[in-house]
Design a protein around this nucleic acid. Structure first.
Length: 457
RNA sequence: GGCCGGGUGGCAGAGUGGCUAUGCAGCGGACUGCAAAUCCGCGUACGUCGGUUCAAUUCCGGCCUCGGCCUCCA
């Protein structure tokens, strides 16, 4: 099965072929580090992590670049409000981002470039744009001239006329065209700035991704991803900058994940439905958050609900229950994901369909009676989970790690021994008393053929 | 206003021109001291009105409806 991806540029599902056989380059827009990642920030990170895992399983060499935007007016504003130095804010927020994303079992990218480390490359690119007549300096600013580019607006499917007609903000007087956007702008002494041919200033938003993708992936590369809201203006402008500066095609395939809603409404601070990843990690395992996100196709809007999170947790309980039962069975030699799981992911990253196959695989595992069948089913389930970034934990850790508090592990084990004696003596009143007492403390006992196991609810 | 994407069984959520996923919830059964877990069985749903077709939830058109974007929000 060939890998097929929905390309925003062509508006169709296209068969994916790397530019250089066997090598894939992918750039995904990363966070602006001024605050904790919220749940909406997590979606593209998780989605493209699954794509990264899939690509790694299909091609010998994958280079995944995800930037850190550490120069931005929101960061400046935050520093002004709090009095904290900018570098302290960006470093701390970057660290927290890594922690949160790590808890969602996302692999680190191969390269994580920071915007402030690529100012030289940005300035060089802006100079090339001016030299080629695609940009002009005005009042300390440098602007990209959209009129100089023939097919500006192709990605987002809009014409220059439409954009000018739709402009609802006051057009800065130094702009030749209402659609022109900033490549470089002047900085006052209290703001971050770098010396440039146009005076001390700082980059516009879009130029960093053009400069960093060029530096780490070259002029033309395979995949560029991000949230759907970035299609316009961010990605449109990246295309304009890069193709005009480099004189070469830019990203070949554009992927965009859909917006995130919360309980059917747009997430916003004013509605009180705004969550950070950290907030959720305090009440649910990262793996459940990850699974919940993957139950909807990446291209669709995703509705984050408490119920969905509970279901994801229940699904993982079911999967880990099966794995716990075969913990001592060696699945070596069965480390390939079944064809149907691979086929689902290769069809434009159909994670909901892949997850449905996970359910079928766990059913097969539960029904298997022969050792060989169990080993095969276990291996296939684990390999499938690995592609999705799931089922990486030890089942015991999944069940016993749970919420803090409650009785200690050895306390529980002692009570299980006492209960076993009561059951042996047919003293079921006592055995049920012990089980209910533990249940009240959030510990669930399950009697099986090989003894009693427990988990934290 | 312009552009774009949706409307699937109680819920979540894939998919397909005829064979109608998957999970949760529900019902019945097996197993169990009782539970839990697990297994077996049970649900013909695709916004609306037309069209094309031997056959449409799936293709085409109108309508209703929900959501997103339209200069820096992932």
């Amino acid at each position: 099965m060939p890998l097929v991806l929905y390309n925003t540029l062509t508006r169709t599902k296209d068969v994916f072929e790397p530019l250089v056989p066997g090598h894939v380059g992918m750039y995904v827009c990363g966070p602006t580090v001024y605050d904790r990642a919220h749940i909406g920030n997590a979606r593209p990170v998780i989605v493209f992590d699954v794509l990264y895992r899939l690509l790694k399983s299909l091609y010998p060499s994958v280079r995944y670049v995800r930037n850190i935007t550490d120069v931005d007016d929101k960061i400046n504003q935050r520093a002004k409000d709090s009095g904290e130095p900018i570098s302290a804010i960006t470093e701390r927020t970057t660290r927290m981002f890594h922690e949160d994303i790590g808890a969602l079992n996302c692999l680190p990218p191969d390269v994580e470039p920071r915007a402030t480390a690529h100012i030289t490359q940005m300035i060089a690119m802006i100079e090339r744009l001016i030299a080629k007549g695609h940009a002009y300096a005005a009042e300390g600013h440098v602007l990209f001239a959209v009129g100089s580019m023939g097919n500006y607006g192709k990605l987002s499917g809009r014409s220059s006329d439409e954009m000018i007609a739709g402009a609802r903000v006051e057009v800065a007087p130094y702009k030749k065209d209402a659609g022109d956007f900033v490549l470089w702008k002047p900085s006052s002494p209290d703001l971050p700035g770098w010396e440039s041919p146009w005076g001390r200033g700082r980059p516009g938003w879009h130029i960093e991704c053009s400069a960093m993708s060029l530096e780490h992936l070259g002029e033309t590369f395979d995949i560029h991803g991000g949230g759907q809201d970035l299609v316009f203006p961010h990605h449109e402008n990246e295309i304009a900058q890069s193709t005009c500066a480099n004189g070469a095609p830019f990203a070949r395939v554009w992927l965009h994940n859909g917006w995130l809603m919360v309980e059917g409404e747009k997430m916003s601070k004013s509605l009180g439905n705004f969550f950070t990843v950290r907030d959720l990690l305090d009440k649910a395992p990262g793996e459940a958050i990850r699974l919940a996100m993957l139950t909807t196709h990446y291209h669709q809007p995703f509705d984050w609900t408490n119920d969905g999170l509970k279901q994801a947790k229940a699904t993982l309980d079911r999967l880990y229950t099966a794995l716990r039962g075969v913990a001592d069975i060696d699945a070596n030699g069965y480390d390939e994901a079944p064809i149907e799981v691979l086929a689902a992911l290769e069809d434009d990253l159909n994670t909901p369909l892949a997850i449905s196959h996970l359910h079928e695989l766990v059913g097969a595992l539960n029904k298997a009676t022969h050792l060989e069948d169990k080993a095969r089913a276990k291996g296939r389930l684990l390999a499938s989970g690995h592609l999705l970034g799931l089922l990486h934990q030890d089942p015991e850790a999944w069940f016993k790690g749970g919420a803090a508090g409650g009785p200690a592990d050895d306390e529980i084990d002692a009570l299980i021994v006492a209960r076993a004696e009561a059951r042996k003596a047919k003293n079921f009143a006592e055995s049920d008393r012990i089980r209910n007492a533990l249940l009240d403390q959030g510990v669930v006992l399950e009697d099986g053929p090989s003894g009693t196991s427990w988990k934290r609810a």
